[in-house]
């Protein structure tokens, strides 16, 4: 299947892309790092706190990567992805609490619901040609609606008080584990899956169409690309992945409230991950999360004053935009070989 596709795309596509294009030393190093990350959680002596940071790194990396699919590739600047995180978290939790449906199934329902919501917002927005700043405002308004609905319907959702999930001990079928390592491995698996999906999309027809639309939508339309459909597909994929991550977060913390899974801060933080690493690359958010999550956690834990971690986020964002707007991986974009590795 691979071979037929590369013949279709001509000579240049036959060059290896992704990690395969990197020098051997780099490939060895990435395998070693990945193995190191797998082994990291195994010793029991690793304190709970570090495991939690490890889980959050993969969680934020996945959120940022999902965002990359629609924004980094397709230029749909959504500042409302927290709405999808919240959709996933609340759908699975409410189904579990009210109907005893396993959060694993709830996750799928949440993904479907988020995809539906994304289509409901995305279709009119793309159809009526709202892009750039206006699309950003629409997504903010949309996440504002979801926030207020959840906050207001306290009879069902617990409102601003949040909703705790009963701790049942080790129940794999109900997405609850006493062993924190399992959460770590689930987070890692979800991250790997998200990155692979993002990578495959980047090298698929859909990916090229998204890139064409991002760079010049009128030209892409003249080349016969249906902008509305392509953007919609990208946005829906982002929403579905984001919702699955929302369910994971609910099961990790076993408590959700609008302030943690629906807030604007979350939407901005996940964007920051992608932007710091380089938002046009499928690896960008991962690089960003590995730097930013430990930094924020450290600042939150080790500074006496509240707000230091978010202040640092803001400072990083401003400095980044002034001096390195393409992010860390963006520095590699002028090298033909590394450009293929990071999928710029």
């Amino acid at each position: 299947m691979r071979a037929t596709r590369s013949t279709e795309q001509g000579e240049s596509a036959r060059l290896p892309s992704g990690i395969g294009a990197a020098p051997l030393s780099f490939r060895v190093a990435s395998v070693v790092i990945l193995l190191g990350l797998v082994i990291f959680a195994i010793p029991d002596s690793i304190p709970f706190y570090y495991k939690q940071v490890g889980i959050l790194i993969f969680w934020f990396a996945s959120l940022g990567t999902a965002w990359t699919i629609s924004c980094g590739y397709g230029g749909m600047f959504s500042i409302g992805n927290a709405a999808f995180v919240g959709t996933g978290a609340y759908t699975s939790t409410l189904l579990f609490l009210h109907f005893q449906i396993s959060p694993w199934l709830g996750m799928v329902v949440g993904m479907a619901l988020a995809a539906l919501l994304a289509a409901g917002v995305g279709y009119p927005a793309f159809r009526f040609g709202l892009r750039g700043d206006y699309f950003a405002l629409i997504t903010i308004a949309f996440s504002g609606i979801v926030y207020e609905l959840v906050n207001g319907a306290s009879g069902i959702t617990g409102g601003g008080q949040g909703k705790p999930i009963r701790v049942l001990g080790d129940r794999p079928w109900l997405f609850q584990f006493t062993d924190r390592r399992i959460y770590y491995y689930i987070a890692m698996a979800m991250w790997l899956l998200t990155v692979v999906v993002a990578y495959r999309i980047r090298h698929s027809r859909l990916g090229y169409k998204l890139l064409a639309i991002r760079d010049d939508e009128p030209a892409a339309a003249r080349a016969g690309i249906n902008g509305t459909t392509v953007k919609l597909v990208g946005f829906v994929i982002t929403a579905a992945i984001t919702a699955a991550l929302g369910t994971f977060y609910a099961q990790l913390i076993l408590f959700i409230d609008p302030g943690s899974v629906l807030a604007l801060d979350l939407s901005v933080t996940l964007i920051l991950m992608a932007v710091l690493g380089g938002m046009a690359s499928y690896l960008g958010a991962t690089v960003g999360a590995f730097i930013l999550v430990p930094l924020s956690q450290w600042l939150a834990a080790n500074t006496a004053v509240a707000g230091a971690d978010l202040f640092a986020n803001g400072l990083i964002l401003v400095l980044l935009m002034l001096y390195m707007p393409h992010g860390i991986l963006g520095l590699l974009r002028n090298s033909p070989r590394w450009r293929r590795v990071v999928g710029w």
Binding site: A306, F311, G314, I316, L317, M321
Partner: peptide, 16 residues
């Protein structure tokens, strides 16, 4: 994003 960054700085600077 830069105005978002500024917002985070001013708001959390006030908190600090």
């Amino acid at each position: 994003l830069i105005t978002f960054g500024l917002a985070l700085m001013v708001q959390n600077g006030a908190i600090m």
